[in-house]
Design a protein around this nucleic acid. Structure first.
Length: 340
DNA sequence: CCGTAATGGACAG
DNA sequence: TGTCCCTTACGGT
């Protein structure tokens, strides 16, 4: 369940595991059999992310390095990639030990049916688990895709068409525009062009690519902006600050794998864990999946956010109860005191 | 066992 | 605005 930062991490992982390698491509579930046949036996020539879109470029082994076909994947709400490998030197960075997560799923060393690890020189991929739409298999690693909202083979032209409809991406070095400054300008201008609530516009991938429900809620809290305010009513400088903050927050998320938006002084160190406060308001015990469980030094998930999934709990800054409301089919969270 | 939420989006009207 | 799709894991029976 990714926002853009996860997809950028995925692109890097594919690059590290499979770039330049001939891949066996299959569809254990069967729903992508035709597409898989189109890609099977080709070389992974590129792995790119733009917002929540992942593009894997394939080139024929005989041809040049330019991708002739792209696999376009959008994970949607619950899509996930699961990785396994033989732990060889060439994949150690991507598979990592002992617990590394990419997307929502844990990455584990391949195990035989009896739980044994790979035999030297005789690595075999694990059986696909669940409804695996696509399996990419290299010599030393395998990647399984489940539950995507989009998974299709497209031409370079079709890929360009998809990208043309996407807003600037704060994680891309140039923001997906001529420059990072141009990307910020495009974002500000687009939001100001409409009276649609800024909180709704941030979820529009044509306005800014890669922002999801968490970054939406958190960046507006940090900016002190009421999510329901019409975009048109916001000052240029306010929106520019929102963009700049997205650049910081999302790039940090891409680097660490976790979304953390709270500043240290606003975290309640010493409070009990989630499991200790049974009977607390709904938001208190709700789990928010993060990729940091058990990582030493990581900010625990219940201290990572200002407002996301904290409805009914006191605002970390002013103490007023965090509010929630459904907006365009998604749950919005905000503090009416801090955000005006 | 069953209901439901989940960091998303396409499409119809 | 509503409806549908994709899949999994968790909590309450």
């Amino acid at each position: 369940m990714p926002e853009g930062h996860t997809v950028h991490r995925l692109a890097r992982t594919f690059d590290g595991l499979f770039a330049g390698r001939v891949l066996r491509v299959s569809s254990p579930q069967g729903r992508f059999a035709d597409g898989a046949a189109l890609l099977d036996g080709n070389v992974l020539a590129a792995a790119e992310a733009w917002g929540k879109q992942l593009f894997l470029g394939f080139a024929s082994p005989a041809g040049g390095p330019a991708p002739e076909r792209w696999l376009r994947v959008h994970l949607g709400l619950y899509g996930a990639w699961t990785f396994a490998g033989d732990g060889g030197a060439d994949v150690v960075h991507a598979i990592g030990a002992p617990r590394k997560r990419v997307g929502e799923r844990e990455t584990v060393p391949a195990e035989g049916p009896d739980g044994s690890t790979s035999v030297d020189g005789d690595w075999g991929p694990p059986e696909p688990r669940g409804a695996v739409r696509v399996r990419l298999l290299g010599a030393h690693a395998v990647a399984d895709l489940t539950g995507p909202t989009a998974c299709e083979v497209v031409t370079p032209e079709e890929k360009a068409g998809v990208e043309a409809r996407l807003g600037p991406d704060p994680i891309r070095p140039d923001g997906g525009r001529a420059s990072l400054d141009a990307a910020r300008e495009a974002f500000v201008a687009k939001v100001r062009r409409s009276r649609t609530a800024v909180g709704q516009q941030l979820m529009d991938q044509g306005v800014v690519a890669g922002v999801g429900n968490i970054y939406r809620a958190e960046v507006l809290f940090r900016a002190g902006v009421d999510p329901l305010r019409p975009g048109r009513d916001l000052a240029d400088a306010t929106l520019a600050a929102v963009w700049d903050d997205l650049v910081v927050l999302m790039r940090d998320g891409a680097a660490t794998g976790a979304i953390v938006t709270t500043r240290a002084e606003h975290r309640d160190a010493g409070l009990p864990d989630d499991g200790a406060d049974a009977g607390a308001p709904a938001g208190a015990r709700r789990r928010t999946r993060q990729n940091t469980d058990g990582v030493p030094g990581a900010v625990p998930h219940h201290e990572a956010f200002y407002v996301y999934h904290r409805d009914g709990l006191p605002c970390r800054v002013c103490g007023a109860p965090v509010l929630t409301k459904e907006l365009a089919g998604r749950n919005l969270f905000w503090c009416a005191t801090c955000q005006t």
